[in-house]
Computed example of a mutant assay.
Amino acid sequence: MVFILRTLFSKELKKPRNYLRSKFIDSVRLHVKGGSGGTGLPKYGGLGGQGGCVYCVGKEKANLGNILGKHRGKTLAAGHGEDSRKTKIIGSPGTDLKLEVPLGVTIYREDGKVLGSVDNEDQTVILARGGPGGTKENGFLGHYGQIHHIRLDLKLIADIGLVGFPNAGKSSLLKAISRAKPRIANYPFTTIKPNKGIIHYNDQRQISIADLPGLIEGAHVNIGLGHKFLKHVERTKLLLFIADVQGFQLSPRHLKRSCLETVLLLNKELELYNPDLVEKPAVLAVNKMDLEGATDTLEEVKESLANIERIMDSIPKELRPDKIVSFENIIGISALTNNDSIQELKMILRKCLDDFADENNPDIVEGRKLYRINKAIIKERGSQVT
């Protein structure tokens, strides 16, 4: 009775905090149906119209949230082809249905087959083809269009992906390095949805950077935000690891990890999810360098990573990745207090991306290949002369 009275006269129950309700949607399921072909006219050899197709087209400003809100529980159906008739021997084709989707979407069919990816503005992928119209070959009977359950899976496209454990300072860095305004607080899991910012340079160069929700141990098997975070790393060109110079401890029940151990754990989580990720170019930023003793810790991390093979046996087995990420640069920063370190980091990131572009330019790659071949030939001829 006391419990009932307390419930009846208690204040309104506390509602969940709004910022914990993530509005970011990166996966949507839809039912799509191509239009049926029109019936032909045997007497006059009339042709039925082709059924319309359902296709998606890439648009920078589109988002999956709007698609879900507009088409939830509905079938996206294209128009049917027009029947052939005496006054119109060839029926008109059905109307196509166009669905605008954000860049970075991959489309999966119900059986897991990939229908295509949309990475560029105005790029199109057919989701369901319309049925052919009636002709002599098919007995003048129009056919049904394709019907599929599909999944639109968004993987953010960014030049740089921020990788780090909760409270490492990723959101602070994103705010300092770009014009983004992520939520920042002095506790873990402030970021529960991806934030994307643009780094601006004086010569009008722009580089996109994505701050993604913090990993925890076990993310590769979908613990915590798991795959919801990791899949977005796949579309980035460069990984920016950010580690707290003090290390990280998720809770009193978890082990305290040192700065070096957090870097190795991040390396291992990426490797276990997708081994190709550790092959990407990477930069390590050790944050909170304004704290006492931070310089000594940074030097220890640099020395340990430079001689990782020699100290690997002393590292706990659960922390050891099979392949260590090869960092292009290791830099100490203070995202909140030191603007000079942020400016230096911006230039490092730009140089790494430029080097990556050169290495993947077909003309440059071919030129280097020819140079090595010619150098080998010249060397061989020189040895024959002597």
Rank of each mutant, 00 (worst) to 15 (best):
I342Q: 06
N361P: 14
T337G: 05
N18H: 15
C259E: 02
A357V: 07
E366F: 15
V233M: 03
K379L: 14
E271M: 08
I90M: 11
G65F: 07
G37C: 09
L64I: 06
K196I: 13
I242F: 09
L349H: 05
D340V: 06
N66R: 08
S178D: 08
S334F: 12
H71F: 13
R253H: 08
T106P: 13
V57C: 09
E110L: 09
A180E: 09
G48Y: 08
G116E: 05
T297E: 09
K181V: 11
K15N: 13
G133P: 10
G226M: 07
R17G: 13
Y19H: 15
L20P: 14
A243G: 07
G91N: 05
K175M: 02
C352R: 03
I89H: 15
L97R: 05
K196L: 13
F165L: 03
L215E: 00
G91H: 06
K193E: 15
S341N: 05
N338T: 07
H254T: 13
V101C: 05
S172K: 04
L64Q: 11
P132K: 09
F248P: 03
D203V: 10
P194E: 00
E137I: 07
G145S: 00
L5Q: 14
I107E: 05
G161D: 01
K369V: 10
T386D: 15
D119S: 13
A285Y: 08
L277M: 08
L47M: 14
E318I: 08
L103K: 00
Y371N: 08
K237D: 07
I330W: 03
V118W: 06
L345Y: 10
K59M: 02
G34H: 01
D355L: 12
G49H: 04
T337I: 09
E121S: 11
A176L: 10
I333R: 03
L319T: 04
D159H: 12
F165V: 00
S172P: 10
G133C: 07
K346R: 12
L305E: 04
G164W: 00
N360R: 10
N287P: 15
D322T: 13
L260F: 15
T190W: 01
L272F: 06
P281I: 01
T124E: 14
